[in-house]
Design a protein around this nucleic acid. Structure first.
Lengths: 355, 355
DNA sequence: GTGAAAGCGCTAACAG
DNA sequence: CTGTTAGCGCTTTCAC
């Protein structure tokens, strides 16, 4: 490694003491504007950057944020959580933090505790997606500030950045209702998950508003999780007894499962059944017909999480932060709106340019 | 923060000096098995973990690996580079490294130099995908070991983990040839990219082996990049003058573009034209028909990169590492092999279970 | 406003 | 084989 430029070099060059330099770097204390400028200039000229490790050691702050999610979530095919991470990575630059990402097994295990927690190498933690409560508890006991993203702990007041699931579910259902469908079904898995619950709630709310009865057998919510295959199965169950006009699936993966089942059975979408999903994952524009869905701004979830977490790090005991991020209906082909001649803004061009 | 357990506490508890503890931790020098055990036990009992920052400061090693890719690559819809990152993250645990990910603009800019480079906060760097040579040069001048993944610098002997593009291209083309197609076209964009070049090379090699002429107008390689839209355009160009029996696209995105074009024109796949892609991205199983392609093990690319990089960090001047990772043909529906009754291993179940 | 000095927790010679 | 000692580069009282 080349000889590193240190704070001493800056001190020497300016004829000041290292403590003054330090004060300038950290924008602390009372330093005259004049010396401040002198220092800043010297820093610039020398190309000086404070060493992380030295700062951490002396200040007892790491400058790192931990990002924890389950292996299951990260290895999911669609990059939902990846995008959240991207958002945090981007935002954390503004605050001069590094984001350390790690995955943990779904089941809590003492041996799986992230290294950065054991090594005291983060100032705060972001949990993305469903996570075993024990991990959260462990971080809490460490006294570290933390925030959940796209998840919530029932019966516990924690900081969290959430999607407006209820609003989104309502929006999707309203849309189907507006298109004239009356026999509208809901398909969901892992119904204990706060997000899925919320979407279901929105669904019921919309039906109630419209004065449409929400039949029990029009709601298939027993699937263990929300993967494609379970969307397929749920749809199969639904069609053994009933023939809905429209389906609102709790997420895109399940909606795609529905599409798969319907195609196999030769049931035309959207002509015979309309389908709407939730999340707006990439696959939506690859399936046939392209899936109408509720768009979640994943990056934004990450950005907001960092904003709040940094605030919590900077002023401890500032209380709990809870935010709901708005969602947006993206109308494509699976809901039939276009065929019915409803005017809709076509997002497809935007989608394609992203690829 | 709770009172941290330090090396001193371990020394006190064991009645040894801190340097002995340090030796044990780092598995260095000659420490008697007896004291070693004693130390290890004390560490266990106290729940001691060495502080990163202190270690870094004293040893002048950060314990971090930088992971650099362009914004363009990371925001790509399919999680190709994300998976490579996942691989690095996973593997780096084994070596007790943290991976710091950052994106940079495609164009080099002095102000976009990753913070971890400015702050001297990494021991080595992984570049993923196509990257402006200036970034590489910058790292080189810093004296840091680095390795490229899925990219290469022409005229420069650098360490790199590469996909066996030539082999894969050959494999895909062989497959089409074996199915009886003779008029086989190649579609590629960004032909200056080493990977695309390699795939094209493999294509030509296979044709030559089979004694099939490689007509110039059967190769559309002028597109600026390899996105879906350019696959669409390239396919359009192709079909204005010719009618190939099969198409090998340089990657899945372009292959999907072909599928799109062909569907619009009412040309049946695989009945009228067979299509094969490269990469095996998620979308392959969502498109209709499902895309036959060449599978690249993305995680493995990351794993291997870390292995080599760590080696380079540990023994500097150990020379250049260059590896080619094998690929595998995944036969689905777009190539017509199944319809033609060829026996093929069906990967679809595996795919679905991943979702 | 600025400087001197004492660490932060660890590693790395060098003694013994 | 183990201990002593001097830093690594910075932050942080506390004087002046």
């Amino acid at each position: 490694m080349n000889k590193r430029v240190t704070i001493k070099d800056v001190a020497k060059k300016t004829g000041l003491s290292i403590s003054t330099i330090s004060l300038v770097i950290n924008n602390k204390g009372n330093v005259s504007e004049e010396t401040k400028q002198k220092v800043l200039q010297a820093i610039e000229e020398l190309g000086y950057y404070p060493a992380r490790s030295a700062r951490s050691l002396a200040s007892r702050k790491t400058g790192n944020i931990g990002f924890i999610l389950t292996e299951e979530h990260f290895s999911r095919s669609e990059p939902f959580y990846t995008k959240i991470f991207l958002g945090t990575e981007f935002e954390s630059r503004a605050y001069n933090y590094y984001v350390l990402l790690t995955t943990v097994p779904t089941q809590f295990s003492k041996s799986a505790i992230p290294r950065f927690l054991l090594e005291n190498n983060v100032d705060g933690v972001i949990f993305a997606g469903k996570i075993n409560q024990k991990y959260v508890k462990y971080v809490e006991e460490l006294g570290l500030p933390y925030i959940l993203v796209d998840y919530d702990l029932s019966g516990k007041k924690v900081s969290a950045v959430m999607i407006d699931n209820v609003g989104g579910g309502e929006m999707a259902t309203d849309h189907l209702l507006k298109l004239g469908y009356r026999k509208v079904a809901f398909i969901g898995g892992d119904i204990e998950h706060p997000s899925i619950r919320g979407r279901f709630e929105g669904f019921k709310k919309a039906l109630e508003k419209a004065g449409v009865e929400c039949a029990v057998d029009m709601c298939v919510v027993e699937e263990p999780d929300t993967r494609v295959i379970n969307g397929y199965r749920a749809c199969e169950k639904l069609f053994t007894k009933l023939k809905p006009e429209a389906i609102f699936a709790a997420n895109d993966a399940m909606a795609i499962g529905c599409l798969r089942f319907l195609k196999e059975k030769g049931i035309k979408v959207p002509d015979e059944v309309a389908v709407v999903g939730f999340d707006d994952i990439e696959a939506c524009i690859h399936v046939e017909p392209r899936l109408t869905t509720v768009r979640v701004d994943k990056e934004e979830l990450g950005v907001v999480a960092v904003k709040h977490l940094v605030e919590m790090i900077r002023k401890p005991n500032s209380g709990i932060n809870r935010v709901y991020l708005p969602v947006k209906l993206v109308v494509r082909d699976s809901c039939g709106a276009k065929k019915k001649g409803f005017y809709v803004f076509d997002d497809s061009k935007i989608d394609e340019s992203l690829i």
